[in-house]
Computed example of a mutant assay.
Amino acid sequence: MSNDGERSTQFPVPDPSEIELVPVLKALADPVRLRIVARLADGNYHPCTVDEYGIAIHKSTLSHHFKTLREAGLTSTRVRGRDYAVRLRGGDLEERFPGLIASVVGVATQRETR
């Protein structure tokens, strides 16, 4: 239980052994989702808000992107009351596809700084 007395729940995600390369790459092929993954690369939970990612899209569109990332096995979502937070499943992804996320995030970060 969290300190404020609210329970945390998780949305279902694929088992690490069930994460497949093609769905991961398809999820990463979208520029918005790639930007989200780059933001989540620190391994911490981040709020599911448009402001957190600096992306000019509707909240419903952002929710769709989060769902796509979660179903591909890239992220996990924590729910506390009405607050949703998402984080990259870095350890699971590194175990399944060594170096993939670090490479993709590195390239995405270089492109943003140009």
Rank of each mutant, 00 (worst) to 15 (best):
L100M: 01
D15I: 11
K26G: 13
H65Y: 06
R78S: 10
P47M: 10
V37N: 05
H65Q: 08
A102K: 04
S60K: 07
V104P: 06
F11I: 12
A29W: 05
V50S: 10
V22W: 15
I19M: 13
I36Y: 03
A38F: 03
E95A: 15
T109G: 11
S8M: 03
T75H: 00
I57C: 09
T61R: 07
F97Y: 02
F97E: 08
A27C: 11
Y45F: 08
H64W: 14
E6V: 02
P16T: 15
R96I: 04
G43Y: 00
R39H: 11
G5H: 03
D83G: 10
L74N: 04
S17H: 13
G99Y: 04
R35G: 09
G54A: 03
P98A: 09
R114Y: 15
V13S: 13
V107E: 12
D15A: 15
A41W: 01
E6R: 02
D51F: 04
R111K: 15
L69H: 00
R70N: 06
R33Y: 05
C48N: 08
E95Q: 12
S8T: 00
L62N: 08
V107Y: 09
T68Y: 06
L34K: 03
S8E: 00
A108V: 13
M1V: 00
V22Q: 13
E112R: 14
E112F: 13
G91F: 08
L21P: 12
D30P: 12
D4L: 07
H58N: 12
E6S: 01
S76A: 14
H65R: 01
I55W: 02
A72W: 04
D92T: 08
D92Y: 08
L25A: 13
G73A: 03
L34S: 13
E18F: 10
P16K: 14
T109F: 06
R78G: 13
G5Q: 03
V22I: 14
T61F: 05
V107H: 12
G43W: 00
T49D: 10
R39P: 11
L62M: 09
E6Q: 06
A72G: 02
A72K: 05
